[in-house]
Design a binder for these strands. Structure first.
Lengths: 200, 200, 200, 200
DNA sequence: CATGAATGAGTGTTCATTCAT
DNA sequence: CATGAATGAACACTCATTCAT
């Protein structure tokens, strides 16, 4: 008794996102996703060729949204640019948990897949490079505005800083309860480094 | 098919370390470990009661060694304390990859294991708290000597700094090819923060 | 390799019954059942959550059928009640072998399962208490009609007699070829005891 | 460091008997037996070619002992022959549990071994036929003395009676708490049948 | 003759994927 | 396009048995 469901693709993505958010890849089964959405397992395969692509698709979409949120907020704010950025991204990441971890794993070149497959999977996941770059540019612009400095986005240390902060946000969030202290700490790390390094 | 194999325990630990180094827990099967060592699966169970204990055993031993290396080096060095520390730990971590990630996951409260089991597993892995604290104390002592400052190891921002650096070392190592630049960057991050924050 | 198999559930139950009939629990593997049915192992788990439930399911169903047969026959027969009962149950039990043994083991409080699990397994198998009681009541009614006696089903010796006969039927069937002699023997055992004991 | 242990064979048999007494065949591992005896697993194989032979050996020995006890008691008693027999064998069987069950299984033609092996195993277990016959003769002699009747041990119903009683003793013992009532019940079953059948 | 580490076929169970309906 | 029963390779783990020591 096949039925046509409206916005099924969206619903799958949403449900899968929630599941992958709270559980590591291996602990989320296709059965679970399907039953949570309320459809048959087979149906998932009409939208994604396999579990990995479903995972990546969700991952992709989720970060795209985060980027939109960040961008919009950036354009609207008039001051406290960096603090705003840190607060927003902390929030976004807290809402993602395991997806964030995935970004970390991605950065760490570590995917939960066997060796032979890694090559092709890697190509498939290359996409977020674009996204990450977009967020990076946002980050550089914020620093420029915050510290009123001329910064070159091709400076490798600036990219180091970005990479580091990106990873440390969820890290601190998980390990230190006081969220505003965490943001304060990161703010100081960034400002003391940037000011000392680029302000001369 | 020799019946008694010399140094088998060591060899298992070594091989398992390498496998867990390069692959996440779920992707390393007991079969794989056994075949890599060149023994029967059953033999693994003569040395470790189950996969998890094997994993933890390897993890534990590996970090214990790292601590010994760091401690010895600390005691011997006369200058460039912080740079030495960063170099050494970068090296150690590069040799560990996924085991490092495990420390990260541990810090992130995320283990690739079902929820019910997590509690007891966690108790089992509690041990590294001790190790981490030992390394943390080393770190604080190094900062004291390097910057000739009075630092209180109970300062939460100092612990934030340590947590952050510990995670960033492998992160940068994976993402930026120039290792001495990485260390230089971290050195500047630490020094600009510590000097600005604690030197008054 | 047909994708939908007709009456698969029934076929699994039938095959499993035959296997458990001829072999003890531990000697019947899921692989064996599957290959005997001509399906994949995984398919078994679409019908039963695990081996034990498959076992119990088969056991349960089989005894339920036996009870129905006995009850129907009882209601229809006009004379030779006891002889009819003995013949019927002999036949039923002959068709069951190891499942009968399972009832015996159940009565003997002996299941081929580890100690810790026994408690919960036992609760799961408690059901046949109901069935056994139903058959016992049938048995008492038959004795009443056969010997025209007032019998109290709460008499512990009557229940001893029932328990004994129930076990002896398959026992004699296995060990003495002449089936009508077996039934004759049991008839005499029962009648001489009941008449002497309760007829006064 | 091989050591010579006195009476090791005896000690193995004793320990194995205790284990098989309380647990079904499949739940008693060679490791368990060895560790209980305090020897290495390999040593067991110096005394028994495999687990099954060890099991049978123990089984055999145990029943041989029971026969000796019964025989001795028979020769000494002056009255209440049957009651004495029933009491004694109840006691013996209660001390054996799973070994008794094994006799039952043997009688039921059911061994916990795969089909192919059954044939040879069967030959190997044929031995207790002799033992069972010896006990049967004891039983017939007791009935003769008890009821002062001429009984022919080749009467198939007499052998049926013996088989039945032998099985019912542990059965009642397991299911009905009052041991003297159990023996009383069996006594009545036997006496009412024997008197009615053979006393004319 | 005792040892116990090594063996490997075997177990119950899971789950991504397929495909007839 | 939706279904979900069927698939079977894969998993962690067990244990009777062997054999170099």
């Amino acid at each position: 008794m096949p039925k046509i469901i409206e916005n099924l693709e969206e619903e799958i993505a949403q449900t899968a996102l929630e599941l992958f958010r709270d559980n590591p890849y291996q602990n989320v089964s296709m059965r679970k996703i399907a039953s949570e959405v309320g459809i048959a397992v087979g149906t998932l395969y009409n939208y994604y060729p396999n579990k990995w692509e479903l995972y990546i698709g969700v991952f992709e979409e989720s970060w795209r949204e985060t980027y939109q949120v960040l961008k919009k907020s950036c354009q609207q704010s008039e001051q406290n640019y960096l603090q705003g950025y840190l607060e927003l991204i902390t929030e976004e990441m807290a809402a993602k948990k395991s997806i964030v971890r995935e970004l970390f794993r991605y950065i760490m070149n570590d995917l939960e897949i066997g060796e032979e497959e890694q090559k092709q999977k890697f190509n498939r996941i290359r996409f977020p490079k674009v996204l990450i770059n977009q967020i990076y540019e946002l980050f550089v612009n914020i620093l420029k505005k915050e510290f009123e400095l001329e910064l070159n986005k091709d400076d490798s240390n600036l990219y180091r800083l970005f990479t580091m902060i990106q990873t440390d946000i969820p890290l601190l969030d998980q390990n230190f309860a006081d969220k505003s202290d965490n943001i304060q700490f990161l703010y100081q790390i960034i400002s003391s480094y940037v000011v000392k390094k680029f302000n001369n």
